[in-house]
């Protein structure tokens, strides 16, 4: 009964969420179009349309996010993993519920895009920068739709785990021991972990802020106007604090959850350290940004930092490791 309710909720999420993300895609095309037109012609009415598109997209992202929250609540309410009596020596609890974070699997890129959209609305001082960011957001929304649509196949890994559990339990398969152990570990140290609820969102909010830093650095190089440097620095400061805290609070979690695994100098950790030291270098170099050509070096550094951020994000998908979804 509980499993069928979960399946119904999953289907319903697809039904209500798919139109939302489709509208996001369509409006993002308009957003990209008006951004490019404004960058070419500099007419205020195009900018006004662009801002309206950005507001609509942000509202739609938030609406979709509310749908995702509802779905996660449904998973919590409907899926109860009750460990059989004969597994009691293996599993220290009678049952578990999934408290699934809102930034895993296909939802993480969606969350990042939503926060980025909100942040772009806070950049009001430079129309050309907002337009450039409009192009970036438009591409971002297209990537989310085609590569990381959270409504198309909601939480495929979680779904697979839940489905496998119920089917193995009902068939009396001997693999239930192994599955119960794995699922208990996944729920305790991954889904329901406090760190999973704090570590990734801080990083994604930081990433969203650092998109604006990178865009402002590009404009700093093109326009040579110190106001872009000031915008880049403002968002870099906020992003850096969240990046630092987000990365650091992942450490006690790693020590606890991966105590029997080889995770030291894992590629994602190496990538994160690389990204962090580069942003530290950017903020350090910025102290003397007003001296000689330092503004130029700082702006280039801001762009290199963002390239390292993208590289670190993609490492999950391209290099094997404990953080990765690819295996050798």
């Amino acid at each position: 009964m509980a499993f069928s309710e979960y399946l119904a909720a999953r289907d319903f999420l697809s039904i209500i969420g798919q139109p939302v993300i489709t509208y996001i895609l369509l409006v993002s095309f308009l957003q990209g179009f008006f951004s490019i037109i404004y960058l070419l012609k500099h007419k205020d009415n195009y900018y006004s349309y662009l801002v309206k598109c950005t507001y609509i997209i942000t509202y739609l992202y938030v609406l979709g996010f509310l749908f995702l929250i509802w779905f996660h609540l449904q998973i919590y309410n409907t899926v109860l993993i009750e460990y059989p009596e004969f597994l009691r020596q293996l599993i220290p609890v009678e049952s578990s519920r999934f408290i699934i974070p809102l930034w895993i699997e296909s939802e993480k890129l969606y969350f990042w895009a939503m926060v980025a959209s909100v942040f772009v609305l806070t950049v009001q001082r430079r129309k050309d920068l907002v337009s450039f960011l409009g192009v970036v957001l438009s591409i971002f929304s297209t990537i989310v739709y085609f590569l990381s649509n959270p409504f198309k196949e909601p939480l495929p890994i979680v779904h697979n785990e839940i489905t496998m559990w119920y089917s193995t339990l009902s068939s009396g398969d001997g693999r239930i021991f192994e599955m119960a152990g794995n699922l208990f570990g996944r729920i305790t140290f991954y889904y329901d972990s406090t760190y999973m609820w704090t570590h990734p969102p801080m990083l994604f909010i930081a990433y969203a802020s650092l998109i604006i830093t990178a865009a402002a650095c590009v404009y700093m190089l093109v326009k040579r106007d110190p106001v872009y440097d000031e915008i880049a620095y403002r968002y870099a400061k906020a992003g850096y604090i969240l990046l630092t805290f987000g990365m650091l609070i992942g450490y006690p979690w790693a020590v606890e959850a991966w105590k029997d695994s080889a995770w030291w100098w894992d590629p994602k950790i190496s990538g994160s350290i690389m990204m962090w030291v580069l942003y530290t270098a950017y903020l350090h170099a910025h102290i003397y940004a007003g001296r000689g050509k330092m503004w130029k070096a700082t702006a280039y550094l801001g762009i290199i930092c963002f390239a390292s951020l993208l590289f670190t994000y993609l490492l999950t998908y391209i290099v094997p490791g404990i953080h990765s979804v690819v295996q050798p």
Partner: peptide, 19 residues
């Protein structure tokens, strides 16, 4: 700044060698 950059390069080497 240069030393931080060098640490970044050590990390890139680590990623490539791990791979």
């Amino acid at each position: 700044t240069l030393v931080l950059f060098a640490i970044g390069l050590v990390c890139v080497y680590g990623i490539a060698y791990y791979n």
